[in-house]
Amino acid sequence: MRHTLSILMENESGALSRVAGLFSARGYNIESLNVAATDDPTLSRLTLVTHGNDQIIEQIMKQLNKLIDVVKVLDLGDHPHVERELLLVKIEASDAESCDSITRVSDIFRGRVVDIYHRTYTIEVTGGQDKLNAFLNAMQQHAVLEVARSGAVGIIRGSSSS
């Protein structure tokens, strides 16, 4: 099962390495990982997508909580939440028709063209993992030159803060 964990931790050098090291040392998988400071500059939020059965996820949560730099760990899947990922993709159009196709598909996915260089389009799309995968699939007919994805970030719905 796919789980998105939201980890609030001390904004200190080494904290990220402790989290990442824990996953590699204990053989847990990391599908994506995203980290940045929060509105409180002493804290960072790390959003991490992993896979595992209930027992593994429970153990991951416990091991994370044991790290001295970790303030709070939340499995976003346990709550109604919003999850987004940012995709930047560079696509080369072969002719005028494919230029049209690229911008049309991009519109359908509410993507935005953020750069054009000759016939190379750089497009920004946000959404859930499925949507971004579907977008990339739809673009496969064109020459996809490069993909950069942020990994998921997420937040609980409603007024409560995590």
Binding site: Q55, E58, Q59, K62, Q63, N65, K66
Partner: peptide, 11 residues
């Protein structure tokens, strides 16, 4: 004392 020791190897 360590919650991570509980149900780690044996449920």
């Amino acid at each position: 004392i360590d919650p991570a020791s509980i149900s780690k190897n044996v449920s």
